[in-house]
Design a protein around this nucleic acid. Structure first.
Lengths: 212, 212
DNA sequence: GTCTATAACCTGATAGAC
DNA sequence: GTCTATCAGGTTATAGAC
């Protein structure tokens, strides 16, 4: 394995375990068994290393999501788009990757939504936003009659459900006294999809000063 | 205002803006206009300060939740417990407090679920768990027929939806191009309740190797 | 209770030999 | 590409004067 990969692996492990700020480059290079200066040689800065660690996991998730969505749209042709298919394209890749190989990394991903970081914001705008936009359009096709803004609210709720499930899986274990198993990928996907399907299809609540 | 309160206010503001790890005691005391040593006098350590900041906001949320749940249960008597009432007791206090006065603090709360911290875990077990247990029992009464484990899964999803909505409200703005307004407390509560009601009442998905 | 001063240590980054 | 050595600046925590 190359020095670069050793650094990425070690960084991912330690970022997940201790948090980004709390993890020093020294800890990373010690864990990786490489020299301190190597991290500044291969990456320019700690910030760039953080982005590289994230991109390595997020890239495959979004690629797979778009591939599944493509397949779903191809199959539907000009007919109605099945919500089940759109939902599965959205949920399955992230649960599989962050529930499997990248499991230890999931808590870190959860924090990224809320951690104030401008390089992360830049990353989201370039990598996340185009994917989000495609899915919003697909969901609109699958849920005609639901106003776009209400859809966006509900997708926001849904992303919270997915993210929290993956990022705070230890909380589910505590809450259930170990009865619920978040490492069961198929069970997690099925349960998320059942919950989200119902939530997305809920009758629109009457809200004073509703947004148009 | 006392020095202690000035420190708590400044810490809350800076923790929320920059993150806990990234905020130094020096930054806090500068913001508060007090001396550096005061923080070690009034609190013993940075970690204890963090817990104090959190407890100040979380306490009132849980008190209000339990008060509303008490009222709901009293009103129901021996009859069936309305899901709407339980849900409202659970959702409204947290949205009102973290969407109002403690708005800037909300992102920090979101991170706490996933931030690895043993003092936080201790805090959750003493403050959060009893509240969670009471609500699980209430939800079970309001949703007879839903197996406890499935309920716990769905409550976990729901907490993700609530937490993400409050903690990552800037994401909702981005996603909706500013069309959805997360600072509208009543609208947020109503939409969360509509979504969660449907999600909690969804048909139970068939899952292979389902947990008993 | 509040200050100053400082101890003891860790941080990211880099220059320069190999 | 990889090392050592080091820079310049930051960190928490505390001792001791007022």
């Amino acid at each position: 394995m190359t020095t670069k990969d050793r650094i990425l692996d070690a960084a991912e492990r330690l970022f997940a375990r201790d948090g980004i700020e709390a993890t020093s480059l020294r800890a990373i290079t010690a864990e990786a068994g490489v020299n301190l200066a190597a991290v500044n040689y291969h990456f320019q800065s700690k910030d760039a290393l953080v982005l590289a660690v994230i991109a390595r996991r997020v890239g495959p998730v979004n690629e797979r999501r778009l591939a599944l969505l493509d397949a779903c749209e191809r199959e539907a042709g000009d007919g109605p788009l099945p919500l089940q298919g759109v939902l599965d394209a959205f949920v399955r890749p992230v649960v599989e990757i962050f529930g499997g190989r990248g499991r230890d990394f999931a808590p870190l991903m959860g924090r990224l939504y809320t951690e104030p970081s401008e390089s992360m914001e830049k990353f989201y705008r370039s990598e996340g936003e185009p994917v989000a936009e495609r899915f919003i359009r697909a969901y609109q096709r699958a849920l005609p009659g639901l106003p776009r803004n209400e859809l966006v609210w509900r997708l926001h709720f849904s992303m919270g459900a997915i993210g929290h499930t993956l990022a705070a899986s230890h909380m589910l274990r505590i809450l259930s006294n170990g009865q619920c198993d978040p490492s069961d990928v198929e069970g997690t996907v099925k349960r998320l999809e059942a919950y989200m399907t119902a939530g997305l299809r809920a009758p629109v609540a009457e809200v004073q000063h509703a947004m148009r």
